[in-house]
Design a protein around this nucleic acid. Sequence first.
DNA 1: AATCTATCGCAACTCGAAGTTGCGATGCGT
DNA 2: ACGCATCGCAACTTCGAGTTGCGATAGATT
Lengths: 209, 209
Amino acid sequence: MWSGQPPARPVGRGAKVRAAVHAATLAELVDKGYASMTVENVAQRAGVHKTTVYRRWKDRESLLTDALAEHMATDIPVPDTGSIETDLRALARSIVQALTSPAGQAILAAMFTGAAHLPQIAAARRQVFDDRLARAEPVLRRAIERGQLPADIDPAEVLKTLAAPIYLRLLITAEPVDETTADQAVRVTLAAVRAGALRPGRHDEPVGE
Amino acid sequence: MWSGQPPARPVGRGAKVRAAVHAATLAELVDKGYASMTVENVAQRAGVHKTTVYRRWKDRESLLTDALAEHMATDIPVPDTGSIETDLRALARSIVQALTSPAGQAILAAMFTGAAHLPQIAAARRQVFDDRLARAEPVLRRAIERGQLPADIDPAEVLKTLAAPIYLRLLITAEPVDETTADQAVRVTLAAVRAGALRPGRHDEPVGE
DNA sequence: AATCTATCGCAACTCGAAGTTGCGATGCGT
DNA sequence: ACGCATCGCAACTTCGAGTTGCGATAGATT
């Protein structure tokens, strides 16, 4: 609701306050989690009074979703190296970097520590994932044109196979996630693709070879 | 802390109350999420007064962790069909069933909607996952002995590859998860194993083939 | 069946955080 | 330097977590 341009001419300090509160919101989020994130602590961390926060944002949820929306606008570059191996590796590593960066940590914390039941957050989670899927699809299309991948693949399935182990380690097993995790995901994904395990549609075919 | 035998002779209605509160806790958890789960609503749903809950459990966290501990004690059967395909398929389907059952939904809700920052919950999450990994490992060992799988595999990596897409769909993309999801995970995992992408240790080798 | 005792129901608290309101102070553009 | 929007501040209301004292009840014992 305050996401557009400033309401009018008098935008003196507003922008600075807004940025400070956004940063403080994400910082408190990663420290305390959504359930323990208090508006008063956010305000204090931003060097601002509680009332000011409530004047700009309707409630805690709006503050959270607005702060996240700003950090989710950063789009990832789509690699185009001429090789599907290096393309996928760059893609997987960018996923790792995005999720392990401070902003990524905040987004994960928001999505999986209390705000997940908010419909706005749940919708944003799916939308962000779908966006990245759509944006990464040309990588696969070009690989097919170059003859490096079979043509009968399900692009969304391929990219989900690539991302799944990274999310699993971050959210479930709490293992360290770095480039080796990304590279490992690439190997598994390429093996599955070349074995024809990620063909579109026919997911009801028998499991055996 | 109340998990052992009843403290003394007088255990009349205690057990029934305890069970009712546990069930109500998990039910409220899936409905509202951890952040919005109030003790008063849990008590009302269990047909019990708020004070009674606080007499048996120290606080909300203890109530939650205790209720979860009881439902996580259910161990999954380890398949042994003589074929790695059917074994893995049974394994993947049991993961799907465990996570989509009412109790599984409650566990997921607890782990990913607010309680994730509680150290007890985070530790329980890793421990449960590790337990299931360890319990499923004989499936892979027997497959190697039968010559159905190469001997140089990392069992934990194999099982994580199997589970990862199921968790991704449940937690991120919110897609429906059923047997076809499980079977698809089996195909990808087997393809990766047979291509040598899940060998132990050397995860720092080059990505290319 | 009468009784004894732990457990439960109930009401009335304290405490902290969400969210609101009115007024006075301050910073920004003109 | 001035005017106006914005901010700081304090004093609220509301709600849920967690506590306490007392009276009521259900289970096991005799």
